[in-house]
């Protein structure tokens, strides 16, 4: 029991009772869950997001959908999808054949079934009917090319009451089928919040320091545009007002950092990736008083920088 207190581990019960249910109300959660709505809101304050090419809302539109208008490479996503389900990365397409990122080919029948399943809500929160959208396919930045398998890694920043408290780099593996989702077998790597440099990794709840497919060390990668990423994460709070949220970024080779989505129910694995319990950091933010979240983003960024000087917010290498 003593060990437990010293690690300050946050469990699901406490996350639900004391954090996500207190700071995220359902209306705000619903706005963030709808990726199309979320993107529109982020664009309003000029936060970069991947460009949306097209949207399908009804079953009958599938047949007549003109995919010739889309660029060769694009991503298919359900608007209210969860845990990266239903996402299809298309590398190229010609009339009636779609080539996936992992070189598998899709026939017209399979393509239409996939779109129909998304619309029926197969991949969506609560199984409600959904919309499909087609968006810009991000290109993996060179710094990550040695520690990723097929997909693009993403960066999750955990933002508590508008102040970033922890970060995790998520690297796709063969097992995760190119997806940056830890449940599906991606690797989570802790991030030094001051420098934006990757630390140790975790794979299926076990510590690891190398990528299982490329056999390269995951430690010591300097994340490009780190200061921008932190700044955008701080600004995002004013858009969604989710006091306990995971903001997911991708660093595009050409267009720099962009927000992929904002998650109102971030998981607990970020603790394993950073090899630290979250409670100390959350308490450090709470110590700033009652109305941190009402401050401007510059003030909240200032709090973040102050916390970095404090030893609580830094990870021993």
């Amino acid at each position: 029991m003593k060990k437990l207190n010293s690690t300050g581990l946050l469990g699901l019960n406490r996350r639900n009772a004391s954090y996500s249910s207190v700071w995220n109300d359902s209306q705000h959660l619903a706005r963030a869950d709808d990726k199309l709505k979320a993107k529109a809101m982020l664009q309003e304050i000029e936060i970069p997001v991947p460009e949306t090419y097209s949207v399908i809302e009804h079953q009958f539109e599938i047949r007549s959908f003109q995919d010739a208008k889309l660029p060769q490479s694009f991503v298919v996503k359900p608007a209210r999808g969860r845990e990266g389900r239903g996402i299809l990365v298309i590398e190229s397409h010609t009339d009636g054949v779609w080539r996936k990122k992992n070189s598998q080919l899709l026939s017209r029948l399979e393509w239409e079934l996939h779109l129909a399943n998304i619309l029926a809500g197969l991949y969506s929160l609560g199984g409600r009917s959904d919309r499909v959208f087609f968006e810009y396919c991000t290109e993996c930045h060179d710094v990550f090319s040695e520690v990723t398998y097929q997909g693009t890694p993403d960066i999750r920043i955990l933002v508590y009451r508008g102040v970033p408290v922890a970060g995790m780099l998520r690297l796709p593996t063969k097992e995760s089928d190119g997806r940056a989702n830890l449940h599906q077998g991606a690797i989570g790597v802790g991030i030094d919040m001051a420098e934006g440099v990757s630390l140790h990794g975790v794979h299926h709840s076990r510590y690891t320091d190398i990528h299982p497919d490329t056999r390269k060390p995951v430690k010591g990668i300097r994340i490009p545009f780190w200061k921008n990423i932190v700044e955008i994460a701080v600004k995002t709070y004013s858009v969604f007002q989710l006091g306990y949220a995971g903001v997911d970024f991708v660093v595009d080779k050409l267009r720099g950092p962009m927000i992929l989505e904002v998650n109102g129910r971030p998981g607990l694995a970020i603790q394993l990736a950073n090899r630290i319990g979250l409670l100390d950091r959350l308490n450090a933010v709470d110590a700033y008083g009652k109305s941190i979240e009402e401050k401007t983003w510059q003030e909240r960024l200032h709090i973040f920088n102050e916390l970095l000087i404090d030893s609580v917010h830094r990870i021993p290498r």
């Binding site: 581990l9 603790q271 090899r275």
Partner: peptide, 21 residues
């Protein structure tokens, strides 16, 4: 039980690497 915010038993297993320290 609704105010029980401690760790679940399975979480001791999930975070076993973190507990070792």
């Amino acid at each position: 039980l609704g105010r029980y915010t401690g760790l679940r038993w399975t979480e001791y297993y999930r975070f076993r690497d973190l507990m070792k320290k």
